[in-house]
């Protein structure tokens, strides 16, 4: 299958008063049509900045280089006006916190019709009709009436459903969900994940799911990309990744995952140490200082991504 979004050598740097910070370094990533790709990593691993770079939504001091092609169209360095048309129209984004991602002063209906009117040139009547249909689709009962309500009249889970509806309404090619369930409580999380799964089945839209929750990944994704310190360290289909993780960091992440089904003998293993400071240029493997298997070679040479099993991994200790 061909990639609908192809990222090559993407590097994002932020100019800070203390020097440059490389938030994303030389990332290659493919999103294929119809698939759901999980992007996993701890806070600061660059997983959000990677996609904000693609959309041209970096903070003022950020600069992205490299290439990101949407259906062959280069997005990095695209004129702001053209990029604005891509955002929301062809690539939609769902944000982490539904409580603050809606404008408290506009009715939900106004906010839902904004995108379709802007990107699809619909008149208000048609846009409202679509909005109602979409709200029903994301399981908001009594949609026609609720369109006239303000965000504060909805619960957190309902608002996230509205955010999802808003993202899907302009019929984008790619959906980027940045930690869509992190701010919600567990039962609501499960409902939202069910909804995402259902929408994936019915609409088949290529989705990137940015998360630090491996449980979410296991339930929803086809493939997983693991990021550490701004680089991709491993990439594989879900089952091999969970069954036989190749990179020590992936193994450590899985080891740090609490399990309800395991007996008391299974202890959580925290990963020792801290993620590296991205202001310094890292020689060798960024994970080496925290890695139990690291040797002298790991701190000297930076590993590249190499084919391993069904996917690719960046670790010098893997047999080549």
């Amino acid at each position: 299958m061909s990639a609908i979004l192809a990222i090559r050598g993407l590097t994002t740097r932020f100019a800070t008063p203390d020097g440059e910070v490389a938030a994303v370094s030389d990332v290659d990533l493919d999103l294929r049509a119809g698939e759901t790709l999980g992007v996993v990593g701890e806070s600061g691993s660059g997983k959000s900045q990677l996609f904000l770079s693609v959309l041209g939504l970096l903070a003022r001091n950020g600069r992205a280089t490299g290439s990101a092609r949407l259906d062959g169209q280069e997005l990095i360095g695209l004129a702001p006006e053209s990029l604005r048309r891509v955002r929301g129209g062809r690539i939609a984004m769902i944000f982490q916190d539904p409580m603050t991602s809606l404008n408290p002063f506009l009715t939900v209906g106004r906010q839902l019709t904004e995108g379709p009117m802007l990107h699809r040139g619909l008149d208000e009547r048609t846009a409202r009709a679509r909005a109602i249909a979409m709200l029903e689709r994301v399981r908001i009962p009594d949609a026609a009436r609720r369109l006239n309500q303000y965000p504060h009249e909805f619960s957190g889970g309902m608002r996230q459903r509205i955010m999802i509806a808003m993202a899907l309404l302009p019929e984008p090619d790619v959906l980027i969900a940045d930690e869509p369930t992190t701010a919600l409580d567990v039962t609501v999380q499960a409902q939202i994940l069910d909804l995402l799964r259902e929408l994936r089945a019915s609409m088949g839209i290529a989705t990137v799911l940015i998360t630090h929750d491996l449980g979410v990944v296991a339930g929803l994704c086809d493939r997983v990309t693991v990021m550490y310190a701004g680089r991709v360290v491993e990439e594989a289909p879900v089952e091999p990744l969970f069954g036989a993780p190749a990179h020590p960091y992936t193994r450590a992440l899985l080891g740090a995952l609490p399990r309800v089904d395991a007996d008391g003998a299974h202890d959580l293993v925290a990963i020792p140490g801290q993620p590296p400071n991205l202001q310094r240029v890292i020689e060798g493997c960024a994970f080496a200082p925290r890695c139990a298997q690291a040797d002298a070679r790991c701190t000297a040479t930076r590993p590249g991504l190499r084919a391993h099993g069904a996917g690719r991994a960046a670790c010098l200790r893997l047999p080549s």
Binding site: M93, L102, E114, L118
Partner: peptide
Amino acid sequence: RREFIEAARAAGTG
């Protein structure tokens, strides 16, 4: 800096 402004930008609003 509020998220709904970022969301609006991400939705391509001018």
